[in-house]
């Protein structure tokens, strides 16, 4: 049994302590926005936030999130699209779209830490794989997002 906060609400999960959070989210809780890509924390499709930090859920045991706050793509835009999602829509970033939940979660975590990252920082920090090659648009959206974030704060 593990208890944690999921998208702002208390969650109590009866599953193996070593079961990766990804499968708890997808198969036990039905939150399928977080994707499975590689299973070895390389591709980033499963990126979620744990206490605000980007984490790859496919190798994160359920026990590791006990007592912590987990946010998934479904929780990000709960009160209307998050500014980063708005920037994604404005730049029409996705193609096949499969990696995009993870990309967005990684970018939101980065912007919380560093509101105006340069391109090198984005490339080094958001190393999620996109097979369609949406990186240039992703970068444009990251550039646009801080203005939207500021707008929201103001």
């Amino acid at each position: 049994m593990a208890e944690f906060i999921l998208n702002g609400r208390a969650a109590s999960i009866d599953a193996e302590a070593e079961m990766p959070l990804l499968w708890v989210l997808r198969d036990v809780l039905g939150l399928t926005g977080t994707k499975f890509g590689c299973g070895i924390a390389q591709c980033g499709a499963c990126t979620v936030h744990v206490d605000g930090e980007a984490q790859r859920a496919c190798m994160l045991p359920l026990a590791a999130v006990a007592g912590r706050a987990v946010t998934t793509i479904e929780g990000l835009g709960a009160g209307g699209p998050h500014p980063v999602q708005q920037a994604w829509i404005a730049e029409d970033v996705p193609q096949c779209g499969y990696c995009q939940s993870g990309q967005i979660m990684a970018v939101v975590a980065l912007l919380a830490r560093e509101p105006r990252p340069d391109a090198a920082t984005v490339a080094a920090t958001v190393d999620n794989i996109c097979r369609c090659g949406t990186y240039p648009r992703l970068l444009r959206a990251v550039t646009r997002a801080p203005e939207l974030l500021t707008g929201k704060a103001g």
Binding site: G33, E74, G77, P81, Q85, G97, Q100, I104
Partner: peptide, 10 residues
């Protein structure tokens, strides 16, 4: 694209 909104909110 029509499919963008659904691809950014999971």
């Amino acid at each position: 694209r029509l499919d963008t909104p659904a691809k950014v909110d999971g």
